[in-house]
Lab assay of single mutants.
Amino acid sequence: EQRVMALYDFQARSPREVTMKKGDVLTLLSSINKDWWKVEAADHQGIVPAVYVRRLAH
Rank of each mutant, 00 (worst) to 15 (best):
E1D: 14
E1R: 11
Q2C: 08
Q2Y: 14
Q2K: 11
Q2D: 15
Q2L: 06
Q2I: 12
Q2P: 01
R3V: 02
R3G: 05
R3C: 05
R3F: 13
R3A: 06
R3Q: 10
R3H: 08
R3K: 14
V4Q: 11
V4T: 00
V4M: 04
V4C: 07
V4W: 00
M5E: 13
M5K: 11
M5N: 07
M5W: 01
M5Y: 06
M5I: 14
M5V: 15
A6Y: 02
A6N: 08
A6E: 08
A6Q: 00
A6G: 03
A6C: 12
L7D: 11
L7V: 11
L7Y: 04
L7S: 01
L7Q: 02
L7K: 11
Y8W: 10
Y8C: 15
Y8V: 15
D9E: 00
D9I: 09
D9S: 03
D9R: 00
F10P: 04
F10A: 03
F10V: 00
F10C: 00
Q11V: 13
Q11T: 13
Q11M: 10
Q11R: 06
Q11D: 06
Q11L: 06
Q11W: 00
Q11E: 09
Q11Y: 11
A12P: 00
A12V: 01
A12E: 06
A12K: 04
A12L: 00
A12M: 01
R13C: 09
R13G: 07
R13W: 03
R13M: 03
R13V: 01
R13L: 03
R13S: 11
S14D: 14
S14G: 09
S14H: 10
S14R: 09
S14V: 05
S14Q: 03
P15A: 10
P15Y: 15
P15C: 08
P15K: 13
P15L: 04
P15Q: 08
P15T: 10
R16E: 14
E17V: 01
E17S: 00
E17L: 02
E17N: 04
E17Q: 10
E17P: 08
E17W: 02
V18A: 09
V18S: 07
V18M: 09
V18C: 10
V18I: 12
V18N: 06
V18Q: 05
T19Q: 07
T19P: 06
T19F: 09
T19S: 14
T19A: 09
T19V: 02
M20N: 11
M20F: 04
M20S: 15
M20G: 02
M20T: 01
M20C: 04
M20I: 06
K21R: 12
K21I: 02
K21Q: 12
K21M: 06
K21A: 06
K21T: 04
K21G: 05
K22S: 02
G23D: 11
D24C: 05
D24M: 07
D24N: 03
D24H: 05
V25K: 10
V25L: 00
V25M: 08
V25R: 08
L26M: 09
L26S: 04
L26R: 02
T27C: 05
T27I: 07
T27R: 15
T27K: 14
T27Y: 11
T27P: 09
L28W: 07
L28T: 07
L28V: 04
L28D: 09
L28F: 08
L29P: 13
L29K: 13
L29V: 13
L29E: 00
L29Y: 05
L29T: 10
S30Q: 09
S30R: 02
S30E: 12
S30G: 12
S30Y: 12
S30M: 08
S30A: 05
S30T: 05
S31F: 07
S31W: 02
S31T: 13
S31K: 11
I32G: 14
N33W: 02
N33S: 09
N33D: 14
N33H: 14
N33C: 00
K34M: 07
K34D: 13
K34V: 03
K34Q: 10
K34P: 12
K34A: 10
K34Y: 08
D35R: 09
D35P: 01
D35F: 08
D35V: 12
W36D: 06
W36P: 07
W36S: 02
W36E: 15
W36L: 01
W36M: 10
W36N: 08
W36F: 04
W37F: 08
W37M: 12
W37R: 10
W37Y: 11
W37T: 12
K38V: 15
K38W: 11
K38Y: 10
K38H: 12
K38P: 04
V39L: 01
V39Y: 06
V39W: 06
V39D: 13
V39K: 03
V39S: 01
V39N: 06
E40H: 12
E40G: 11
A41K: 13
A41G: 14
A41R: 13
A41Y: 08
A41Q: 10
A41P: 05
A41I: 07
A42K: 14
A42C: 11
A42L: 14
A42E: 12
A42N: 15
A42Q: 12
A42V: 08
D43S: 13
D43H: 14
D43I: 09
D43L: 01
D43M: 00
D43R: 04
D43G: 15
D43N: 12
D43A: 10
D43F: 02
D43Y: 05
H44A: 12
H44M: 12
H44N: 12
H44F: 09
Q45D: 07
Q45Y: 07
Q45P: 06
Q45W: 01
Q45A: 11
G46W: 08
G46L: 10
G46A: 03
I47P: 09
I47A: 07
I47M: 15
I47C: 10
I47Q: 02
V48F: 04
V48L: 04
V48E: 02
V48I: 06
P49N: 04
P49I: 09
P49H: 08
P49A: 00
P49S: 07
P49Y: 04
P49W: 02
A50L: 02
V51W: 11
V51P: 14
V51L: 12
V51G: 14
Y52S: 14
Y52R: 07
Y52V: 04
V53D: 02
V53P: 06
V53L: 14
V53G: 07
V53R: 01
V53K: 02
R54G: 07
R54W: 05
R54L: 00
R54P: 10
R54Q: 13
R54E: 10
R54K: 14
L56T: 08
L56Q: 01
L56G: 04
L56I: 12
L56S: 13
L56V: 11
L56F: 09
A57H: 15
A57L: 02
A57C: 12
H58G: 12
H58Y: 14
H58T: 10
H58A: 15
H58N: 14
